[in-house]
Design a protein around this nucleic acid. Structure first.
Lengths: 130, 130
DNA sequence: CCGCATCCCACATGATACTG
DNA sequence: CAGTATCATGTGGGATGCGG
């Protein structure tokens, strides 16, 4: 069996895979990482690139990504303030397996959609919307 | 910029990457897929393999995985009931990029931990627990 | 053994307003 | 511009009990 987490709560706290998935599995982290793939961006540039993220969630997600070392944050003490975010080496290296997953998703999306159609077509699975 | 989602809500509904990440990013799906990597298992076997999952969440996650075509569900009309779950071809193929991500996570976990320690050591980041 | 229904709570996320 | 603070809310997920 592949080892993804641990059987005891203590071990689960330090599961490497959960650490990573808790980040890229959330709603905004991956979008931010991909927005920064081309180079450094300012706060508002990221916000515009993503579109429908609230300032609160953007700030929070950026902090998490910074804490884990995926991005760097640089503040220029000018007025108005200017903050630039950039992928770190670690962040860029994460993008490699992530892009493989993205490629897989795009390749197999039709199969997933077909599987859902088949599943939803079965009479026994229609009680309510799921 | 890497394209991970869309800028409009309508497009976001059918984003392939979100479809996949919403699954493997949740709390139990990846654990179940990995538990099934070695072969078919009965409901209770999966529950024991994972350890601290509730029956409710196990059932729900298995349904989602079945609906998306990652696993197959086979019911034997015996008494007591007997249900076996098995990875589909699609599920096995998903494990390829997923295992790369797992490998990345295990390789780079020390760097993440170090980055967190550095971040948490900075005085300006200590207001509350985050 | 397998799974559904119900209740409930914690938390992630969003909306809005305010600040340096 | 780049946040912080506050309030509201939807949903994930646990506990428990019942049913086939």
């Amino acid at each position: 069996m592949l080892r993804v987490t641990a059987t005891t709560p203590q071990e689960a706290e330090s599961c490497p895979v959960r650490d990573v998935l808790d980040r890229i599995g959330d709603k905004w982290s991956l979008l931010i990482l991909c927005a920064l793939a081309d180079g450094k961006l300012r706060f508002m540039d990221i916000k515009r690139a993503i579109g429908d993220v609230s300032q609160r969630m953007l700030t929070q997600t950026l902090r998490h990504l910074e804490r884990d070392g995926y991005i760097t944050r640089r503040v220029y003490p000018s007025v108005p303030p200017r903050v630039e975010y950039e992928l770190s080496e670690l962040g860029r290296s994460l993008l490699v397996p992530v892009q493989q997953l993205i490629a897989w998703a795009e390749t197999h999306h039709p199969e997933i959609a077909a599987a859902r159609d088949r599943y939803d077509a079965r009479p026994e699975n229609v009680p309510q919307a799921d």
